[in-house]
Amino acid sequence: MQQLSYFELIGFGPNGWGNALLIATGMTLAVALCGFIAGAVIGTLVAWAKLSSSIVARSLADGYTTVLRGIPDLLVIYLFYFGGSAALGAIGSLFGAEGFIGMPAFVTGAIAIGIVSGAYQAEVFRGAFQVVSRGELEAARSVGMHRWLMFRRVVAPQVLRYAIPGLGNTWQLILKESALISVTGLVELLRQSHIAAGSTRRPFDFYLTAAILYLLITWVSTTLFQRAETYSMRGIRRAS
């Protein structure tokens, strides 16, 4: 058999894996985005707990961020993949189903990424909240804003503004972490490269392509986050 050239291999021709790789890239983005959103929700709640006056809430939140930032992400993914399947199996057996019920890989991935990145995002939000001037909060309270209204009108817009650089870092982390989801069998970029490498025996070409695609995503998202930062800071005068 004649060796295919690199571009035939990853291209969109009859022997090319281009389509599969593109779809897999989309999957990587989808799982990362879902994880990012889940992490933002968790992060907001945990940041709220960290800033609350209740000692119980504070120590629970501190415990959460310490643990999740101190153990490998891969371990968390294993927990949700195997643990989730076991839990589903237990629920299934209640309803008379038998045997192993696999946790959907996409859900596992999104939850695992959300739980891990929630710990990082909580710190980002907490730091950003502390930048919001106390005077503004007092002013909001003095004009009679209620908690939710104050959150929506005063806290959230400012926290988001100051959180953008930190969120950008977290997004990069998530993007790289999403490669670990391949161990659960979800066909994202790395898994697809693995499959293609196995069937064509050209592992170097495919992993190199995967690396290039990851770098491309990283590069584009860095630019986007920088734009968002400039845009959100348009009304702020910086010292110096």
């Binding site: 790289k176 670990l180 790395l190 592992p203 070409d205 992993y207 690396a211 770098l215």
Partner: peptide
Amino acid sequence: VFVFRGSPLLVQIFLIYYGLGQF
């Protein structure tokens, strides 16, 4: 720095462990 910080470590590991097997 851009290449090694911008791509997942697992991809780098696979590139070295499986990928170099091609050569």
